[in-house]
Nucleic acid binder design. Structure first.
Lengths: 352, 352
DNA sequence: ATTCCGTTTTGGATCGATCCAAAAAGCTGT
DNA sequence: ACAGCTTTTTGGATCGATCCAAAACGGAAT
């Protein structure tokens, strides 16, 4: 290993040094750093040369002290280990990089305390905006509190309260689920079970609403059944095993997300049942695996990367125009029909 | 939507206000904010009360201007959408939150330009340390450059150059792969193909080295075969299909990661072959799916969350003692044997 | 030559914390 | 009461940028 000789207290290059080297004032250099159009092209070039020559590093901390902009954004998700949020974050990151913004990231783990702590930190760092997928049980007042702080906040995928108060970007799961139910009904299914989560947040309520609505439309209210459990592959498997062992078995399952749906597929194959033939399965998110399982999994596509991009774009816009009209961007969540709910494989399970 | 009336230019509460309210000097308040032990308990309490009463928000930008510490860390991975890095990030996040640090995150997408840009930004923000999973083709000089900046840097999972120059946290893939090869040989396999990536980085080279070493030990150099391709599920599938159609089929596949391995499983089942019986498959990473496929996938566990935690801990340590001895933390990567390489299912495919 | 006006440039004040050397306050023990 | 400690507290200088009102510049028109 090469010796780690650190030049103790190397004199730091500042705006002042650049100004001296380029023969202009500090103000001018500052304007160049801000890409201001006020500076004459020739001067700008001279300053740029000085910056390169001296190896100047812009000190954003110092800049922040005077100006309100920090070129940073805070992102809160509830579990970054979940591939859905990984993809979401990738979309956010992509958009922010183009705008020279950098994101702070935190996983709340659906803990209100962790979420609050991180938000406090974001305030201290004076981020320009917040992208928030609120933790379960987040009180509706939080959004107002954040607004009081003067910090733009975009809710992503979930929102507190019955409908988004401010800016929001999400997927139209209500319609997505309703369409899935209609699709299954068209295939002859009647006993359609919804595997939902145990938590009570908007994304969960929307799924429920879509399910109820479509079942109701078809006059199947009495057959509607909702089963709650953890949202993991394992839980999906266990719950499905149990469901299929009962007498009143469903002929179709709509799962809260693809992880649960993959668990359901495992359970079916374990029981010697063929998904799509003996029991239809539909997931949510359309993660990469979905197309590659056997049989391939029908899934409602939520396009996390696009949602991330849209959310980040909206945040940047809100930073530019803090008092602009609030926006609610709800992306389509189309059903990707695959073998696990294939028409050709369907057969009526019972007459209505 | 409630009106968005923003109190324009609400007077900001500063240290000075707290000092006045608590009847002490600014310096004392500052010491309280820094949790210094110099302040008497009674004074500390008075200051805390004032902070609560006035709703003071610490201004980290201002603090940064004077002190070298920012309580931020920069994290570069090459693809945050990859579940492996999601889990890694979760580990990092966990550890940092306990230390009241916040991470900046960027996905380099294995682009040197994006990586360089983000690093420049991190320098401007004066992060206290860097966790870096270097993009492919990153020149060895980068680590020295970063050291020159006076910024501690922990390489994670990958390192530039033949061996890590400075701090490093990773998994012992070399031994992990070698053990997997030995395991397969013990089961009677001889034609063991390695499905490697196309990129040339340390994590790839280590896998190769482990493979070569174990094949060599067994005197199977001539049978060793390495196939390169993209590291996706699809690619794993396609490559496996092609391999199995050739005459000189392998009896076992070791895949660069689990995604590729899952692709391989799909290919086998598509060909009517039974993984673990007609062809053994071993993956790397031991992602959640691995245990739940059918047949379950043998995999070399890399424990991304632990690696993230260890890396973050090391970074915090390096911040405290910048000139401490450099550390190389290499975690075990044990082979999780499952049905896709089950002893009981194995049968000698050919005599040596 | 002078005035006018749009384009560039500038110096000083300022943001809100930390650092540091020195002062003040509290203890002991004589 | 005072010297000699240790424990707390303090005021000014300082970090490195931005903001802003005013000055300098340069060309065109009078």
């Amino acid at each position: 290993m090469p010796e780690n000789l650190r030049v103790s207290s190397r004199p730091r290059v500042t705006l002042r040094d650049i100004a001296a080297h380029a023969g202009v004032s500090r103000s001018t250099v500052s304007l160049v750093m801000q890409e201001s159009s006020l500076v004459a092209e020739s001067t700008r070039q001279r300053v740029r040369d000085a910056i390169d020559a001296l190896g100047y590093v812009y000190n954003r901390g110092a800049a922040t002290l005077r100006s309100p902009r920090t070129a940073t954004i805070g992102v809160v998700v509830h579990d970054i280990a979940n591939p859905f949020f990984g993809a979401l974050m990738a979309g956010i990151d992509e958009t922010l990089q183009d705008a020279d913004y950098v994101p702070f990231l935190a996983s709340s783990g659906d803990s209100l305390a962790r979420q609050a702590r991180f938000l406090a930190r974001m305030r201290e760092h004076r981020v320009d905006a917040l992208l928030l997928c609120p933790a379960e049980e987040t009180p509706a007042s939080l959004i107002e509190t954040i607004a009081d702080w003067g910090m733009p906040c975009i809710e992503v995928m979930r929102h507190v309260g019955p409908s988004p108060l401010g800016d929001y970007v999400g997927a139209d799961l209500r319609t997505g689920i309703a369409n899935a139910v209609r699709h299954l009904i068209a295939l002859g299914h009647r006993r359609i079970t919804l595997l939902a989560g145990t938590a009570d947040h908007s994304a969960d309520r929307e799924r429920l609403a879509g399910y109820r609505q479509a079942m109701h439309e078809a006059g199947l209210d009495d057959l509607s059944r909702i089963v709650r459990g953890p949202l993991t592959r394992c839980a999906g498997r266990e719950i499905t095993l149990e469901l299929m062992r009962g007498d009143d078995r469903p002929t179709a399952l709509i799962c809260h997300n693809d992880l649960v749906a993959l668990g359901a597929l495992l359970a079916l194959s374990h029981l010697g049942l063929r998904a799509g033939q003996d029991c239809a399965v539909v997931g949510v998110d359309d993660i990469d695996e979905a197309a590659l399982t056997d049989p391939a999994l029908s899934s409602i596509a939520t396009h996390p990367r696009s949602i991330g991009r849209r959310a980040a774009e909206l945040a940047l816009k809100r930073i530019r125009t803090p008092d602009g009209e609030r926006e609610r961007i709800v992306l389509d969540a189309p059903l990707m029909v695959r073998a696990s709910s294939q028409p050709s494989l369907a057969r009526p399970q019972e007459s209505p």
